[in-house]
Design a protein around this nucleic acid. Structure first.
Lengths: 251, 251
DNA sequence: ACAAAAGTGTTATCCTTACACCCATGT
DNA sequence: ACATGGGTGTAAGGATAACACTTTTGT
């Protein structure tokens, strides 16, 4: 690893990085994919560097694939973080030692100032298989509303990403990317409530959703409990894409 | 100049730049502040580099001040442009020659790949005094909807900025920054029509604006023509700022 | 008096909101 | 039968959109 990363350094643009906020959804919570560092056990967003002949968007897609083994059809650049003192590198020596890295070149690389661009990706949690990289011991989903303290300004980056998804929920395919293939209207509404951080009227939400014409009603889902069985739905992908541009409006 | 920029180079972050879309408004048009280069006579956005110990936002503010001699209370970072081949540097030698620059160091500086972050600023056109810099022969306002071909991907950058202002018009103080102190309701509506690229009903716009409670009605304005004299208005800045967070809604 | 622009009024329609009601389901 | 969640109904209030009407201005 030490060898390989040292030799790779020359292929990357110095001072530039990409951080990915990969959002999943499970048990009524938004989840963020995080990595845990070896020495300090602190958590961070999955990120990486940009190859000298690579578009920045492509770098984000590459990094996403490395972490989830998935291709992402949609990613969204949401903000670039360029404060002078955004990174605290006081633990750097400890981290590098834990990884058996003593190359001055690698040390210098991580000591430089980085300006980092944030990308948002959304994925059905069941499909993504987290892959810890060589720098980390763990790679896991954590609930977005109670994250641990992350390294650098990564908590700010997540906050910006959550604000972005909230602001643009009408233009993002949140239902199609975050839910499984089939879902109940209740599950869809809970997702919107989670993103928007407020409760939505059950009856009105259902009416509005159905009127859009992007949902296909399937068979009923018998959960085995003593209640009326709800219908399952799936998205009409053709319709959805047609509406996507002008915004799919729920309030 | 040659001397000074060569010596300044070491103070800047390599590969990083900032481009500013400074928007003004006059005679019913949005205007963009552009610079004209010496040799090729091509136009570009005002931009600059980031000092090694400077926050990126601060760099944008510094560059804005250099071009307009104004302090900007609000700037908005809207996108970062990171495509590998976003800059066409085939005219670089000609440009440098026209500026009597033959320093290899300066040449190399401008030949590197740059990732550039776009910032939006808005200003009352009468207040801004364009300042051409040492690299340019002209600095002028040009109508946003019929810009000449700009260098690099600067036309894309302007397009993104215009899309940004359109999307977020409810949250941006467009009226307060782009109009003079006093204005008629017609002028305010025309500004919104220009930004949103569609016509708005005169009567309904007026009602909605007044109901918000952010306008103060002043004396009538007699233009000297054979029509009913419209009222002048100014913004109630306290009220405006209070409403700003939750969005000032016009459709 | 006239034309044109500005201010205000009116109405139908739609959307939002809140809540009520009935229906289906396993125990 | 019953409790509970799910589907649908309804009615008030507000927002929107389109257009009509009246007022004001200099010629």
């Amino acid at each position: 690893m030490q060898q390989s990363f040292e030799s790779l350094i020359d292929n990357y643009l110095p001072g530039q990085s990409v951080d990915c906020v990969i959002i999943g959804y499970a048990s009524g919570e938004l989840k963020i994919l995080l990595l845990q560092w070896k020495a300090t056990k602190r958590w961070s967003l999955p990120g990486g560097f940009i190859l000298k002949d690579e578009d920045m968007d492509k770098a984000a897609l590459r990094i996403l694939k490395e972490r989830t083994t998935l291709e992402f059809p949609f990613i969204h650049q949401f903000y670039t973080f360029g404060n002078y003192r955004r990174r605290d590198i006081s633990n750097l020596n400890k981290e590098l030692a834990a990884m058996n890295i003593n190359s001055p070149k690698v040390n210098e690389w991580f000591r430089q100032r980085f300006i980092s661009t944030g990308y948002l990706a959304m994925v059905n949690l069941d499909k993504a298989k987290p892959q810890p990289d060589e720098l980390s011991i763990k790679c896991d989903w954590m609930p977005a509303d109670k994250l641990p303290p992350l390294i650098y300004d990564h908590n700010d980056i997540v906050a910006k990403a959550l604000e972005y998804i909230k602001m643009r929920v009408h233009f993002l395919p949140v239902g199609m990317t975050l839910l499984p293939e089939k879902f109940t209207m209740n599950e869809l509404r809970l997702l919107y409530e989670t993103i928007l951080q407020r409760s939505l009227d059950r009856a009105n939400f259902q009416r509005k959703m159905l009127k859009l014409g992007v949902l296909i009603r399937l068979e009923k889902h018998f959960a085995g409990n003593a209640h009326k069985a709800p219908y399952l739905y799936k998205f009409d992908k053709k319709m959805y894409n047609a509406f996507q541009k002008e915004g799919i409006g729920f309030v």
